[in-house]
Write a protein that binds this DNA or RNA. Structure first.
Length: 981
DNA sequence: AGCGTAAATGTTTTT
DNA sequence: CATTTACGCT
């Protein structure tokens, strides 16, 4: 960390850095916990009791010599006392990692104050105006980290009086005017500020304060006072921890939140969980089976570290894969500890990388307002590029290109690092390289670029790397088995030599290999971090015994496991219910009946989930649910921010923020139609290519209708310049012509347009919500939110509704009752996986699905299913056969009697008996055929299969059979020896 | 240019 | 089946 260049108190200057005041959630009169950013010291103070010795330090012998620690605060009067201390010691925040650039300094100050809980607290006290007293010192050198800002905390009436009484002059400044002033590119320094205040012309009561000899003297005095106190304390005892120190300070009479909380934290943990939580500060791997309290261990660990004084909330980094998981962690943490979780580094890999890249956009060579491409955007960018490069999209399917590019980035490889032994790959690499250039030119990054760029930033910039390494003493990773090589390298880089990486994962739940996840990272972790303690959490608190036994039996079929067997104290519970329906519609009908019954028995709809392998399956289920009048929510699938009209609206905003974003420009240049046709766009692209500029620049030079378009964007931009986000949104929707466009729809499209209008309205709502929930309410921030959290928050969360989702989306969740639907060979396991011969991941997926259930589990399948407009016939999933017969209860009658199920041979039986007299048989399209479609058959050579089509009749005909092992084949009945089974 | 209709094509899981 | 592309007409 850079020295505080302006301070005359070199050793004390560090004290100024990083105070946190966590005021929220502390009840009046109670003690509150405080932390020091630098050394992680935790201290305690009671409202009104804050004075120098409570607010001091960790003793010099605790390994943090020279670091005086944070100040403390509690609500109301306490914060004023804290503020007093802060100001007396020239207090403020040192926030190097939040500062983006000179231009952005002002916003950073405002944002940080809010983040660190200071302004937040003030808001509750002085609800109208937010004041800060910035004693601003910005010295900006070549080193990005040399940007140093010290801001005092906010000034309220009481504090102003305090200054007056003490003869200290101060500056009062409205955050908004500060922000505005620096919007125009002025650099933030003392002179600039002074000029700004003078220009204000006395509309406010500005009082200036500059560092004076008098103030310096006061500071010296204070330091001496603190030091003296410190000495006496240290002499009396040596403190092994912050807690001991605090106990000592209060001589036992203080009700210790820390002590209470801590024992509360560990309460109810089993020995393994507890061991994991209490591990010393070293790297560790926790193998946590499904339902073993993984999230609990992770959050408790964080709470433990913090309350134990081992680390401050700002000194740790917690990474998850989904926003949902991150949110969950934050929520639980807030419940455990009276701390302000805002500003903590808890988030997804992508979210955290984004945060770092925004903070250091310059070092990362990105524009401040860089936009994020979701996979759809990425694909269209690739298509566009390939067209420009004249790459044959028959030979190089864009999707494959996309996979190639993302895949390599996930391995941490840039185009020039990919090995190529054939011209085909070399060509792909050329596209890859050109794609990156294009993104750079347009100021956009895709998902994997977010990670790679951040990794490279840290790898190349020593100062930054060391800064973050210094800061994040503890790094915690959720779902570690899902990390890809790049993410692992990123973690390694941040962990450095000495930081502790606490990884929680379950190799049996690794279901994201398809997007680059590498379970091998678990072994690498053990090696790279010299992990001595692998703790296995095997007690399951979620499911009844039969469900767990089924899961264990299934997963035992996988090789190369780290080895783990879940057990439970709970009863065996019910058997697993298995139902084979004739068609997907019947399957859905059965499920609906069961749900109704369960609901009558008192199981809430929210406690039930319908899981499926692929999103397409939800359609039939939804249909049945709607007709039955059951309310449900579909998770995943088509997300809010991915809807066409939303994407259009966002494209306008993106283009306003960053005119280089060609993707956004192309999306809206002629939507709503304004007479710019394909030909014009082509010309525009050619012009851009010729002058090597972005489309926007070319458009600015073009004429006619294109000029009009440029005019629209510029008009939007200038009209919304000073508006708050929701109003920007509203203005843009109206004046871009989007809303009028949909309003003018008539006839057949009217209904659809109506829905789109509602969605656009919802977009304004989400902007309003966003402004309320986030301190950084800039447009860029909202756009980032839209790309990274593609609409998780949906209305109706509180409603009692069923959950419909893919198995992937269900990971981490649990329900009383789970229906796993479409348990068919070719669907689950998916055909592609069967073809690739990689059934293990599918099996893990089934394992995840099974272990979601607490009490009741249904496995349902259908003999025939409409898929992509065609009827498919498939056999029961082979996974079903891997489950012990004793655990299963076949609801479909014809299977209950089938004892020989295990050896693969079945008796011939008509379908009719299977469905209790009301069968729904797939009608054979060719009645002449003796072989019914959907009939299970056995072939001498190819094994088991299902008839999927037929031609002709008798011995002259032939049938198509989909064999489990050998795939689909046409067989002539004259020769093929098929046996019905 | 822009619209409408017909044909073709693709389809796992996700930040 | 749902979405994209192709083509032909105004």
């Amino acid at each position: 960390m850079p020295e505080h260049s302006k301070s005359s108190h070199a050793p004390f200057a560090r004290n100024i850095s990083g105070q946190i005041v966590d005021i929220e959630q502390v009840p009046r009169g109670d003690a509150c916990q405080c932390f020091c950013i630098q050394c992680g010291g935790a201290l305690l103070a009671r409202k009104g009791e804050i004075n120098a010795h409570h607010f001091s330090h960790k003793p010099a012998d605790s390994g943090n010599a020279g670091n005086l620690t944070g100040c403390v605060g509690a609500l109301e009067s306490a914060i004023h006392a804290a503020a007093k201390q802060l100001l007396e010691t020239e207090g403020g925040l040192y926030i190097p990692d939040l500062i983006r650039s000179k231009e952005d300094v002002s916003r950073t100050i405002a944002g940080s104050l809010v983040k660190f809980g200071i302004v937040e607290a003030e808001k509750t006290i002085f609800s109208e105006e937010k004041y800060i007293r910035p004693d601003v010192m910005a010295s900006i050198g070549d080193d990005p980290l040399a940007i140093e800002i010290v801001v005092a905390n906010p000034v309220g009436t009481d504090k102003r009086n305090f200054y007056k009484k003490n003869g200290i002059s101060c500056v009062e400044i409205d955050l908004r005017s500060l922000r505005d002033a620096f919007k125009h590119g002025e650099s933030l320094n003392w002179d600039g500020l002074r000029r700004l205040l003078l220009e204000d012309g006395g509309s406010k009561e500005w009082v200036f304060h500059s560092r004076s000899a008098e103030l310096d003297r006061q500071i010296d005095e204070e330091i001496e006072r603190i030091k003296a106190l410190e000495k006496t304390k240290v002499k009396e005892t040596s403190f092994s921890s912050g807690e001991a120190f605090i106990r000592q300070s209060f001589q036992g009479e203080m009700p210790l939140i820390i002590g209470k909380e801590q024992s509360g934290l560990l309460h109810g943990l089993n020995p393994e969980q507890r061991a994991a939580v209490e591990l010393p500060a070293q790297s560790a791997l926790i193998l946590a089976g499904a339902g073993s309290g993984k999230t609990r261990v992770l959050t408790t660990r964080i709470a433990y570290l913090i309350s134990n004084g081992q680390v401050s909330p700002h000194g740790l980094l917690a990474v998850t894969f989904t926003n949902k998981a991150a949110k969950e962690m934050v929520t639980r943490l807030s419940a455990m500890l009276p701390i302000n979780t805002r500003g903590m580094w808890i988030g997804t890999f992508h979210g955290l990388c984004n945060r770092m890249l925004r903070a250091h956009h310059r070092e990362a060579n990105l524009p401040q307002t860089f936009q994020i491409l979701d996979s759809g955007d990425q694909l269209s960018a690739i298509k566009r590029l390939m067209k420009a490069m004249n790459v044959d999209d028959e030979k190089y399917p864009p999707r494959e290109m996309q996979h190639f590019i993302s895949g390599n980035k996930e391995q941490g490889l840039r185009a020039h690092e990919v090995e190529a032994y054939d011209p085909y790959t070399r060509r792909k690499i050329e596209v890859f390289a050109e794609y990156d250039t294009q993104c750079q030119r347009e100021g956009v990054v895709d998902f994997s670029e977010l990670l790679l760029r951040c990794y490279e930033l840290l790898a190349r910039n020593q100062a930054l790397r060391e800064h973050y390494q210094e800061r994040f003493k503890h790094i915690l990773v959720d779902e570690f088995q899902d990390t890809n090589p790049l993410q692992y390298r990123w973690l390694k880089l941040l962990a450095g030599q000495s930081n502790a990486l606490f990884a929680v994962g379950d190799d049996d739940q690794s279901i994201y290999a398809f997007r680059g996840a590498n379970v091998g990272n678990m072994q690498e972790l053990l090696r790279d971090f010299h992990v001595e303690s692998v703790i296995k959490l095997e007690q399951n608190y979620r499911s009844h015994g039969n469900i767990l036994d089924a899961a264990n039996a299934l997963i035992a079929n996988n090789r190369e496991r780290l080895g783990k067997n879940l057990w439970t104290d709970a009863d065996k519970g019910e058997q697993i219910r298995v139902y084979e329906a004739g068609t997907d519609v019947d399957e859905a009908a059965f499920i609906v009946e069961e749900i109704k019954q369960l609901n009558r028995e008192g199981v809430h709809l929210t406690e039930m989930a319908l899981l499926y392998r692929s999103n397409a399956q939800s359609r039939v289920l939804e249909h049945a649910l709607v007709s039955a009048g059951l309310s449900y929510r579909v998770y995943g699938g088509l997300r809010f921010f991915e809807r066409q009209e939303i994407k259009h609206a966002l494209a306008y905003l993106r283009l306003m923020e960053n005119t280089d974003d060609d993707n956004a420009l192309l999306r809206i240049i002629n939507f709503p139609t304004r007479g710019i046709g394909a030909r014009s766009i082509e010309q525009l692209q050619e012009a851009a290519k010729q002058y090597n500029t972005t489309l926007w620049d070319a458009a600015a030079r073009a004429g006619g209708k294109i000029t009009a378009f440029v005019g629209i964007i510029e008009a939007l931009r200038s009209a919304t310049k000073d508006l708050p986000l929701p109003e920007i949104m509203e203005h843009v929707l109206e004046h871009s012509g989007l809303v009028p466009h949909y309003q003018n729809e008539t006839g057949a499209k009217k209904r659809e347009a109506q829905e789109r209008l509602e969605n656009l309205n919802e977009l304004i709502n989400s902007a309003t919500l966003f402004v309320h929930e986030n301190e950084d309410d800039s447009l860029t921030s909202f756009l980032t939110h839209a790309s990274l959290e593609s609409g998780e928050h949906q209305a109706g969360d509180s409603e009692d509704a069923l959950h419909l989702m893919t198995v992937h989306a269900a990971k981490g969740l649990e329900f009383h009752t789970v229906f796993i639907t479409g348990v068919e060979e070719g669907l689950f396991p998916h055909q592609n996986s069967i073809d690739n011969g990689d059934l293990d991941e599918e099996r893990r997926l089934m394992y995840v699905a099974i272990t979601r259930a607490r009490r009741r589990l249904y496995l349902t399948c259908a003999q025939s299913r409409m898929l992509h407009g065609k009827t498919n016939y498939s056999a029961v999933s082979s996974f079903l056969r891997e489950l012990p017969e004793a655990l299963l209860h076949w609801i479909t009658p014809r299977f209950t009697a089938r004892k020989t199920f295990d050896n693969g041979r079945r008796e011939t039986e008509s379908y009719v008996s299977a469905f209790g007299g009301t069968p729904s048989i797939p009608a054979p399209p060719s009645p002449k055929s003796t072989w019914r479609i959907g009939q299970a058959v056995f072939h001498q050579k190819f094994g088991e299969g299902v008839v999927t089509d037929s031609e002709g009749s008798g011995n002259e005909g032939r049938v198509q059979v989909n064999f489990k092992r050998a795939g689909s084949k046409w067989l002539a009945l004259e020769y093929a020896k098929l046996t019905p089974i």
